[in-house]
């Protein structure tokens, strides 16, 4: 495989289209008013935002919303890349029914993502809401993980 320089300024419009086809959404920060006052678990780097939104601190299993920070997003696949670390519980992006993911950088393709380098810590590439089609091939979202994923572009 030829080594190419990764494309790190992906197309946000493509990301929006991909997220929507997966049943996820590209959201603005303003739209987070919708979760004001909810029980939530957040990445500690988002503490100021949590206070602004009047979120109530909850445990992993009780939270209605999990707020995460992605290392980067991948346009081609509509994915966000989340790394484990001291700031965020791994289950915080998995157990609550809604996962809000903040992201600043966007790479174009999955190949670019790996060329750029995946985080060394335990990492998960999340592509849309949790889903199953085990019963008669019918798509159902939110089987074990979040049924809703909102991606918010950080300025």
């Amino acid at each position: 495989m030829a080594v190419q320089k990764p494309v790190v300024d992906g197309d946000w419009e493509l990301l929006r289209i991909r997220l929507e086809s997966l049943g996820a959404e590209l959201r603005t920060i303003e739209s987070l008013e919708e979760i004001r006052g909810r029980r939530a678990i957040w990445d500690t780097r988002l503490a100021d935002l949590a206070i602004d939104l009047g979120l109530i601190a909850a445990g992993v299993w009780d939270a209605e919303v999990g707020l995460s920070i992605a290392e980067f997003a991948i346009g081609e696949t509509g994915s966000v890349v989340l790394a484990a670390g001291p700031e965020s519980a791994r289950l915080g992006s998995l157990a609550p029914p809604l996962n809000v993911v903040f992201v600043r950088r966007l790479v174009a393709t999955l190949e670019d993502a790996f060329a750029l380098g995946m985080p060394a810590a335990t990492t998960v590439i999340v592509t849309g809401p949790s889903r199953t089609a085990d019963i008669e091939g019918i798509l159902v979202r939110g089987v074990h993980g979040p049924g809703a994923v909102w991606v918010v572009r950080e300025p």
Binding site: T77, M118, T122, V124, I125, T127, R131, A133
Partner: peptide
């Protein structure tokens, strides 16, 4: 499953 990528790809370190 005819997906571009599965919902979760877990890289366990």
């Amino acid at each position: 499953t005819g997906q571009r990528l599965t919902t979760y790809v877990h890289l366990i370190s």
